[in-house]
Design a protein around this nucleic acid. Structure first.
Length: 495
RNA sequence: GCCCCUAUCGUCUAGGCGGUUAGGACACCGGCCUUUCAAGCCGGCAACAGGAGUUCGAGUCUCCUUAGGGGCACCA
């Protein structure tokens, strides 16, 4: 429509980023209301992969225009979360960039200038309607069965004002007729009837912009070329296109990502259990595994595998692999993948990432050499880093409780004399190494004429408190003679 | 209520231009291995939402129905 264009910050017109393509600039623009949700992180991952694939830029912008819900911890949680999962941004908070500031609350004057421009050109207007009046209008409309919308009471009143005046908001004028359409990369053409759109607020009475204004102003000023965001934004994209047109700006390309669902197929949220990235970290998920898993929901590469390194993901990333339909978050598959990643690690790496978790139980006091031995045995049995608490506690503490079923099966009066004898023989064993321990067990079984399992199982239960675990002889070597013998003797009291 | 999006195994998905025994992965169920568990290996179960149409031929194209999801704020 408008032939003229408006540049609130003309000096940015010719800025470019050395070494990075200006053609592929994407952003992740969360609002700091708490720890980032895996759905948001998934969007961030896809944007990041896109930027890396095309040697573009991944920009982080904090959308903190809702001062009611704003929390300082929210900002920190976002930065920490992104760093934890390895999504480093090229421009944004902490490191700045040519198009900053990257925090919207620091850009208020820009939004004011933009909003004022729209008012002056007749694209927007001041509105003094009170919340009470809006409420009344809405009620009336509902009663009549018409869609609740602002009745445009102030649209042609010519109310004067300046941005941020208390009790005044600025509303955008939606054309009465016509259609607004855009081409979505994933979904094709989507169009809206203007008659169904609302004269939405662009500047609130507290002087802060709404998402719609701030978002398009910043995307334009930061020279964002592709907007990849969740599909819940599709319905407001019509408004955004209208805004771009009013300013005379070229809209970016849009790709509306499918949403991540819970097992009940509604949008994944807290009520489905863990959903924030912090929680996954605490549950013992590896950032690489979560990254890998999340990148594969709603997107798929050409190759028929599922474990991909970051570099491979970057190489293969392609918009055409984006899936328009939503996917259910399958914690089971994530767990499996996490196990795969654990098994791919070197043992000392595994020990290193486990340290914070060991520390929580003061198990970090054990010598590094010991931990290496423990994890050598446990590595292929762990799906989560925290599984060590359940599956390997006996390397660090004496068993307090014995597996109930195991107790009934293995701690029988018949086994008691054997356990006593085994304890004695172990005590006399010079080389407490798994080969020798195994030989000792086998010799005893042969001698008495029993099956190996007849003594192996009770001893395992006595030493570990469990009926499952790594090879008994290897595990006993790690735990050591004194402790093993002590535990067997203690178990005798249970029989 | 109105608007928008979506639709292949239970779940994540492959299946550009219409012609496949509809492929893979997780989960599940068997088997092998084995002192248990895990890992690994081998095998199995399991899907084109429904209905019209176009066509020699439709998972693939069109329309309708149904179902699910999302959006209708001075929240993002």
């Amino acid at each position: 429509m408008s032939m003229e264009t408006f540049e609130p910050l003309p000096h940015l017109k010719d800025v470019f980023t050395p070494g990075r393509s200006m053609e592929y600039r994407v952003r992740f623009a969360p609002s700091p209301t708490g720890s980032p949700h895996v759905g948001n992180i998934r969007s961030a991952i896809l944007n990041w992969l896109f930027a890396r694939h095309y040697n573009g830029s991944f920009i982080l912008r904090i959308e903190d225009t809702d001062r009611e819900r704003y929390t300082e911890e929210g900002v920190k949680a976002i930065l920490d979360g992104l760093k934890w999962i390895g999504l480093y941004w090229d421009e944004g908070p902490e490191l700045g960039g040519p198009f900053g500031p990257y925090i919207q609350s620091e850009r208020l004057e820009i939004y004011h200038r933009c909003a004022q421009y729209l008012v002056e050109r007749g694209y927007a207007y001041y509105c003094t309607c009170t919340k009470e009046r809006l409420e009344e209008v809405r009620k009336e409309q509902m009663a009549k069965g018409i869609p609740p919308r602002y009745d445009r009471h102030c649209r042609d009143l010519g109310i004067k004002g300046s941005p941020g005046d208390p009790d005044k908001v600025i509303r955008f004028k939606i054309p009465y007729t016509g259609n607004t359409k855009f081409n979505d990369i994933i979904r094709g053409e989507i169009s809206f009837s203007n008659a169904l759109l609302d004269d939405f607020v662009i500047l609130k009475s507290d002087g802060y912009p709404t998402y719609h204004l701030a978002n398009i102003v910043d995307d334009h000023l930061m020279k964002i070329t592709y907007v990849m965001r969740a599909e819940e934004w599709i319905p407001s994209t019509g408004k955004h296109i209208l805004l771009y047109n009013a300013f005379g700006w070229k809209p970016p390309k849009f790709a509306h990502l499918s949403v991540i669902l819970g097992p009940d197929k509604s949008k994944l949220s807290k009520r489905h259990g863990a959903s924030s990235i912090i929680e996954f970290r605490e549950m013992g998920y590896l950032p690489d595994a979560l990254f890998n898993y999340l990148s594969l929901i709603g997107w798929s590469p050409k190759e028929n595998r599922e474990i991909f390194s970051r570099d491979e993901l970057i190489q293969m990333f392609d918009l055409s692999g984006l899936n328009p339909s939503s996917g259910v978050f399958d914690i089971n598959k994530l767990k499996w993948m996490n196990g795969e990643y654990i098994r791919m690690m070197k043992v000392d790496e595994l020990v290193e990432v486990s340290m914070p978790f060991l520390k929580k139980r003061s198990w970090d006091r054990f010598p590094h050499e010991y931990l290496i031995k423990v994890y050598t045995l446990m590595q292929e049995r762990l799906k989560l880093i925290t599984d060590i608490y359940e599956l390997g506690y006996y390397f660090f503490e004496d068993p307090h409780v014995y597996d109930e079923n195991g107790k009934i099966r293995y701690f029988t009066p018949e086994t008691k004399p054997h356990l006593e004898e085994i304890a004695e023989r172990l005590y006399s064993l010079i080389n407490f190494e798994h080969k020798d321990i195994e030989e000792l067990f086998k010799a005893y079984a042969r001698e008495i004429g029993i099956k190996l399992g007849f003594i192996v199982h009770p001893v395992r239960l006595a030493v570990t408190g469990m009926t499952i675990g790594p090879g008994l002889f290897e595990l006993m070597e790690v735990i050591g003679k004194e402790t093993c013998v002590k535990r067997i003797k203690k178990a005798l009291d249970e029989i």
